[in-house]
Design a binder for these strands. Sequence first.
DNA 1: CATAACATCTGTAGTAACTACAGGATCAAG
DNA 2: CTTGATCCTGTAGTTACTACAGATGTTATG
Lengths: 129, 129
Amino acid sequence: MIAIGEASRQSGVGIETIRFYEREGIVPKPERAQNNRRLYSDDDVGRLRFLKKCRDLGFSLPEARMLLNLSENQLADCQSVKELADSHILNVQRKIRELRKLEDALVELTANCARGNVACPMLGQLQLG
Amino acid sequence: MIAIGEASRQSGVGIETIRFYEREGIVPKPERAQNNRRLYSDDDVGRLRFLKKCRDLGFSLPEARMLLNLSENQLADCQSVKELADSHILNVQRKIRELRKLEDALVELTANCARGNVACPMLGQLQLG
DNA sequence: CATAACATCTGTAGTAACTACAGGATCAAG
DNA sequence: CTTGATCCTGTAGTTACTACAGATGTTATG
């Protein structure tokens, strides 16, 4: 059993974030030592690591929580996981498309900007009715 | 001079957001009618529209505010605008790269998920130490 | 053994950029 | 004159943390 700092190091989840996950009921309350300090098992660290990976993959916290619950449930098959992931992939793809349009718009907007221009064409475009 | 609801319609900025921009000092305080209601001029609406476009282009609120200030300053040439926009373009491009990596990772993770799988390979991957 | 530096505890407040009320006043139309 | 729309102020909620403040406990060093 390890202290919260070590759990943080091993999982990559910040100390404050671990306590936040506990407050929110996303991870179970850990054991406490006699001095009231939190004690984490390997399973606890595993959960934190799992959550970290989900978050790094862009899943929202509620989604990460669902995935964690699914992963602890032996009976669940792939189906719910796959649905969640597929819908998330669609979100990511949509976001990429939006950002690409945005990039195009920005590049076009700045194309005619040159040092010394007094009437900035980008500002002009932004000001148009 | 128009009321806040009409200014919202004409600019595309929500009523609450307009009042928020005013509180934050991003737009000047508008005139008030005798009944204490806000009155907006065409210039005011122009500012709101300008901010809306900046936000739609993904500029942060502080950035949008800077651009607005630059646009009201006749002396400014393109330089500052171009710098801000270029750095923003880099941000957008970085974000796109990140999301593409993320998409790849998700697609790979779900590739072997099939209906009826009892041991979900995606969860398996997420659980790995 | 004392002291300093570090780790942890609880609880609260701050972040970005809005959004959503609550509770009240005012206005326009029928 | 009443109904419904609009407006006012002020406060709290959203996401997912992050940053304290102030107290207590532990570990390392002289």
